[in-house]
Amino acid sequence: MTALLEATDVRKSYGDTLALDGVSLRVDAGEFVSIIGPNGAGKTTLVNVLTGLTPPSSGRVRFKGTDVAGVGPARLARLGMARSFQLVTIFPALSVADTLAVAALSRLRRSTRPFAALSRDADVRAAVDEVAALFGLHDKLERAARTLPQGDKKLLDVASAFALRPDVILMDEPTSGVSTADKTTIMQTLVHAAQRMGVRAIVQVEHDMDIVFGYSDRIVALHQGRVLADATPDAIRADADVVRAVLGIATTQGRTQPGRA
């Protein structure tokens, strides 16, 4: 079976620094995959390579069977891969409705229509309403994104990626910068949204081990630009090398203690 997303022997270097050293990764339909690793392990570089933002120095990235290495995020988004960023990334002056409409128009291939009346586009309106309702933003549609509380900004960031109705979504720390109380809410919201919107696979970079072990089908542990382990959460917990090198924390009674790796 063809993988939805597959990276083969990907290397990425910045001058003398080797950020990714022969990383191979496969994501199949129906999977929730988490990428973990200490700071500097190459997690964000890997996401940037997978989402076309950064071309790899060598190696291959295939999405739905097509080579997509370095094609750029815009084309990849149109092919069905969306991403959200580590830091909250929004359009500060645009309303919530307009932010979601940007993604909906892109999905509908209507972004460059110069003379269509946006306010009368029923398809876009319906798409905006659907995503806003899924993410609890329906009563804030007319608010400027910059005026939202931090948790809602993060939700809007992720919601706009979901509004593309992608096959695969890659999220770089979807719960970073939000309160501990909001983290579970955000994760439950986006898993529910993924089911409703037909997202076939989720890949996330995450430091919060409760989130990682609570939601993942598979965990890929990176260390110094290499894949140290690629296994189920239970197998990762049982792997002493991963616990020592990547998690860096003790485990008790089979459960990883909360905290950042």
């Binding site: 989402t51 933002l53 750029g72 995020p73 815009a74 988004a77 149109r78 969306a82 991403r83 960023f85 990334t89 929004i90 359009f91 500060p92 002056a93 645009l94 307009d98 932010t99 409409a101 940007v102 993604a103 128009l105 892109s106 999905r107 209507r110 972004s111 460059t112 229509r113 110069p114 003379f115 269509a116 009346a117 946006l118 306010s119 586009d121 876009v124 706009s160 990626a161 509004a163 593309l164």
Partner: peptide, 24 residues
């Protein structure tokens, strides 16, 4: 007031984000 106009405003606000949402 068109989709093109909204695409331009999204670029003005955050070009990287606009690109990640498929805007050329």
């Amino acid at each position: 007031g068109s989709p093109f106009g909204l695409s331009l405003r999204s670029i003005r606000e955050n070009a990287a984000k606009a690109e990640s949402l498929g805007i050329g």
